[in-house]
Design a binder for these strands. Structure first.
Length: 440
RNA sequence: GUGGCCUUAGCUCAAUCGGCAGAGCAUCGGAUUGUGGCUCCGAAGGUUACGGGUUCGAGACCCGUAGGCCACCCCA
């Protein structure tokens, strides 16, 4: 319990009991990424501060107060280097896109990534300084279909992991042509009602008026009367937004237009969206979100290139699943314990285990000299579904034809058969449910 | 950055008025010349978060720090 050797504040250890759920989540994300024809990319966990400052915007919370800075070795030229752990994936991906000339690849580039993000926040339920995100980005596709496609992809992920009550919020915040007019309308509206705004919002009104709508302390009637982004869209943005909505309708994907959804990062244009889970008691209900960022590539030094992306918070997905009592994510493949008698050499045990593993089984071999009863006891308690009991060495060299005892640790029945017949005998069986351990 | 609650064994918690730091669960071993999770016996496990103060004596009272949980802002 000493605090000297504890995980840093806001970080967590993923303990063995949580491993299967995380693996399953990552497998689903990777599988969907491939089915939607995304290609994997991985970028560094830290980048120059300037990349995030320019990309996300100086006035974004992520840059203004949540940047997790890192430096080089003491005494090195880089000691004071301006690096930061990535708070989000998009800026780094766009940087890599430009650095490696990926724009010459044919067609819109479809990329996916999974990994940790870092924000220097005060931790609380569902919010950590290091959290994990699955992210997809499409660079170079201006059309509305891809907007609908990534929203569908995120929705399909939640469905596939078994999460219910997920709702999508949708908005369009315009582009370089119509945003200035909308900003002016907001400045006019809120500027005439300054006495109703928080200090924070007054500051935002000067720097980034859209984010006044983000203010959770904004009086509801004031928010309801505020100019709506969709009423200020230029013709092209309005047509794009309408097309996205129609495509979602046609796919039967439910969403709610949310006029206050402007997102916390400055690079978004046109389509923005977030996913929430209903019924969660705590306040951290945002499961994921994203939007179109048609100006970011140019902002970071490339030629004008439309793009869109979505980030899915895996920690919060798991929390939401736990909230709804879901345990299906924790199932494991059936474990087989390989046991020996007193006269069974370690060599025979290892050889048999190796043979069974080659056959695709998950095998835990017992190398102890304990009594057989104790080995069975132990195998059952670590959750093994099956036990294979080897004969002692007087039966000769262990091989496929060696006759072993296969014991079903759930049913308590056993049979004798050749080692070669074990894989077929246990195929298709489920792992036994883990024994409830109080307090773990 | 702000606020509330909290911190005793791996986990959940006791410890009367300030008087020998304990239990249950979990772990390991034994009872068991060889087939079970039960039972019984035993072992191991502690800087009572850390630092200071009051006191003959502090897990308990006081001060400070750190950490945890939750909430605000914002977000995943």
């Amino acid at each position: 319990m000493t605090d000297r050797l504890a995980a840093p504040r806001g970080t967590r250890d993923l303990l063995p009991d949580e491993g299967p759920a995380w693996s399953r989540l990552e497998r689903i994300a990777a599988g969907l990424s491939e089915r939607y024809a995304f290609e994997r990319i991985d970028t560094p966990l830290f980048e120059p501060v300037e990349l995030f400052a320019r990309g996300l915007g100086e006035s974004s919370d992520a840059v203004e107060k949540e940047m997790f800075r890192v430096s080089g070795a003491r005494g090195s030229d880089e000691e004071r280097a301006e690096w930061a752990l990535r708070p989000e994936p998009t800026a780094g991906i766009v940087r890599a896109y430009l650095e490696h000339g990926l724009q010459v690849r044919p067609g819109p580039l479809r990329l996916w990534m999974i990994g940790p993000m870092f924000r220097y926040d005060r931790p609380q339920a569902g919010r950590y300084r290091q959290f994990s995100q699955w992210d997809v980005e499409v660079i170079g596709d201006p059309g509305p279909m891809v907007d609908a496609e990534v929203i569908e992809l995120a929705g399909r992920f939640y469905a596939e992991v078994g999460l219910r009550n997920v709702v999508a919020h949708l908005n369009s915040i315009g582009d370089a042509a119509c945003r200035p007019g909308y900003r002016a309308a907001l400045v006019g509206y809120f500027g005439a009602r300054l006495e109703h705004l928080t200090d924070d919002s007054r500051r935002r009104l000067a720097v980034n008026p859209l984010r006044v709508l983000d203010d959770k302390l904004l009086e509801p009637e004031l928010a309801a009367g505020a100019p709506r982004a969709v009423d200020h869209l230029c013709d092209r943005c309005r047509a794009h937004f309408r097309a996205v909505c129609e495509l979602l309708d046609r796919q039967g994907i439910a969403y709610a237009i949310d006029h206050r959804l402007v997102r916390g990062l400055d690079y978004y244009t046109r389509t923005t969206f977030e996913f929430f889970v209903a019924g969660r008691e705590g306040q951290q209900q945002a499961l994921g979100g994203g939007g179109r960022y048609d100006g970011l590539v140019e902002l970071l030094g490339g030629s004008p290139t439309p793009a869109i992306g979505v980030g899915i918070g895996l920690d919060r997905t798991l929390l939401a699943l736990a909230d709804q009592g879901d345990t299906s994510l924790t199932t494991r493949s059936a474990l087989l314990a390989l046991l020996g008698r007193e006269g069974t050499s370690l060599g025979a045990r290892l050889a048999a285990a190796s043979w069974l593993r080659d056959a695709g089984l998950a095998v835990r071999a017992d190398g102890s000299e304990r009594r057989l009863g104790r080995q069975i006891d132990s195998a059952a308690r670590i959750g093994a579904r099956w036990a294979v009991i080897l004969p002692d060495d007087s039966a000769g060299e262990v091989g496929e034809r060696t006759v072993v005892v296969l014991r079903d640790l759930v049913a308590g029945e056993q049979q004798e058969l050749r080692l070669a017949d074990v894989p077929a005998a246990v195929s298709g069986t489920a792992q036994q449910p883990p024994r409830a351990v109080p307090g773990v």
